[in-house]
Amino acid sequence: MKPFLSILCAFCISALSLAQNTINLPFDKSPGVTWESEEKNYFSEIWQNQVVTNVSVPTMEIFKPEKPNGTSVIIAPGGGLYALSIKSEGTDVAKWLNEKGITAFVLKYRLVPTGEDGVAEISEEGSTNPQRIMERVRPVLPFSISDGLSAVSYVRSNAKGLGLNPEKIGFMGFSAGGAVTMGVTFNCTEENRPNFIVPVYPWMTVIPKYEVPEDAPPMLIICATDDPLGLAKDSANLYMAWLNENYSVGLHMYAKGGHGFGMKKQGLASDNWIAQFHSWALSQGLTFPVGGM
């Protein structure tokens, strides 16, 4: 009886592991950064969106399509590194990609330690003391980037078991998540190099002076000219950096869209950015139509 119970127990544990949607990523300790509050998931009246704050332990939530085509995308939501706009720049993106056969991973990377309402904190500091934001972000960003690198390593090392192509792993990040995307690109090795990247209105002023890496991955940049944070110029410069080195790069710069549009509908051309990403990915051979390989 005991051997039977042991086998049954092992089977149940294995089945639970396979069914689990949240992946705990390995990470090193964060010297100099202390989180006193627990991770929090709530609706922000300020941003009118579901957000996550106080992430101290990196995780990913996996979204699997009914008909996977082997392509995967790691999604890094934005939020100034004080929060994650987890719905419009995370789960809603993942669900749209699933409809196209793409497996999605929504990454919760480490954030600036905040109090009860991280969105309120960054909003207040943004209007009264913007320099304070940079002071709080700088020591945390390297850990956020490390979490992004761990995410790519996880997907690549587990690609076979997940039914994924280890050479079709994308990284898409929004605003601060765009900074994580580019930090991953500038600091990756062969093991954790994404095969394509999609920085969406990336926050480049927090990234130190950069050089385009050798064998830089194909990149599609998304931004709006009227971004109130002034991110359009940096997006254009990023495009030119890739172009000057003759690497594959595309740019969709919308006249209107503002900042943080994600999957929100504004009745503007920028509403279609994700469909244009998909068209780009198809044309690059980075993904396939549903049912095709």
Score class of each variant (00 low, 15 high):
residue 253 M to D: 05
residue 151 A to S: 10
residue 251 L to Q: 03
residue 31 P to I: 08
residue 4 F to Y: 12
residue 70 G to L: 07
residue 188 C to V: 12
residue 73 V to G: 01
residue 177 G to N: 04
residue 101 G to V: 00
residue 291 G to I: 04
residue 71 T to F: 01
residue 27 F to P: 07
residue 185 T to Q: 09
residue 132 R to M: 11
residue 258 G to C: 06
residue 66 E to N: 14
residue 41 N to P: 09
residue 12 C to V: 15
residue 204 M to K: 05
residue 63 F to D: 05
residue 84 L to R: 00
residue 173 G to Q: 01
residue 218 P to D: 09
residue 241 A to E: 10
residue 121 E to F: 10
residue 271 D to W: 05
residue 244 N to F: 10
residue 89 E to T: 00
residue 41 N to H: 15
residue 237 N to S: 11
residue 250 G to M: 05
residue 291 G to D: 06
residue 119 V to M: 03
residue 68 P to H: 05
residue 45 E to G: 14
residue 6 S to F: 15
residue 285 G to T: 06
residue 271 D to R: 05
residue 227 D to C: 08
residue 7 I to N: 10
residue 256 K to H: 14
residue 126 G to C: 09
residue 219 M to K: 07
residue 121 E to S: 11
residue 20 Q to C: 12
residue 129 N to R: 12
residue 36 E to L: 14
residue 211 E to N: 12
residue 222 I to E: 00
residue 33 V to E: 02
residue 245 E to A: 09
residue 254 Y to V: 00
residue 191 E to P: 06
residue 98 N to S: 06
residue 201 Y to M: 04
residue 262 G to M: 04
residue 82 Y to S: 02
residue 111 L to H: 01
residue 292 G to R: 15
residue 101 G to F: 00
residue 287 T to Q: 03
residue 56 S to Y: 10
residue 110 R to N: 03
residue 187 N to L: 07
residue 15 A to N: 10
residue 3 P to F: 02
residue 95 K to D: 12
residue 256 K to L: 14
residue 38 E to Q: 12
residue 135 E to Y: 11
residue 194 P to F: 03
residue 142 P to G: 02
residue 20 Q to F: 13
residue 269 A to D: 12
residue 166 P to R: 04
residue 91 T to G: 09
residue 218 P to G: 10
residue 21 N to P: 12
residue 15 A to V: 11
residue 218 P to M: 09
residue 252 H to S: 09
residue 192 N to H: 03
residue 175 S to F: 01
residue 55 V to Y: 02
residue 234 D to T: 11
residue 91 T to P: 06
residue 13 I to S: 05
residue 180 V to E: 01
residue 58 P to Y: 04
residue 265 K to T: 07
residue 117 D to W: 06
residue 280 W to Q: 08
residue 211 E to K: 12
residue 129 N to W: 11
residue 108 K to P: 03
residue 283 S to H: 10
residue 14 S to E: 13
residue 159 A to W: 01
residue 65 P to W: 03
residue 55 V to M: 06
residue 43 F to D: 04
residue 263 M to Q: 05
residue 223 C to M: 13
residue 171 F to W: 04
residue 233 K to I: 14
residue 289 P to E: 15
residue 112 V to E: 00
residue 149 L to H: 04
residue 162 L to Q: 06
residue 36 E to N: 13
residue 262 G to A: 07
residue 107 L to Q: 03
residue 58 P to W: 03
residue 223 C to K: 07
residue 204 M to E: 01
residue 177 G to Q: 02
residue 26 P to L: 06
residue 114 T to S: 13
residue 279 S to T: 15
residue 260 G to R: 02
residue 224 A to G: 09
residue 27 F to Y: 13
residue 37 S to F: 15
residue 172 M to L: 11
residue 151 A to W: 04
residue 176 A to Y: 00
residue 64 K to E: 13
residue 17 S to I: 15
residue 56 S to F: 11
residue 282 L to R: 07
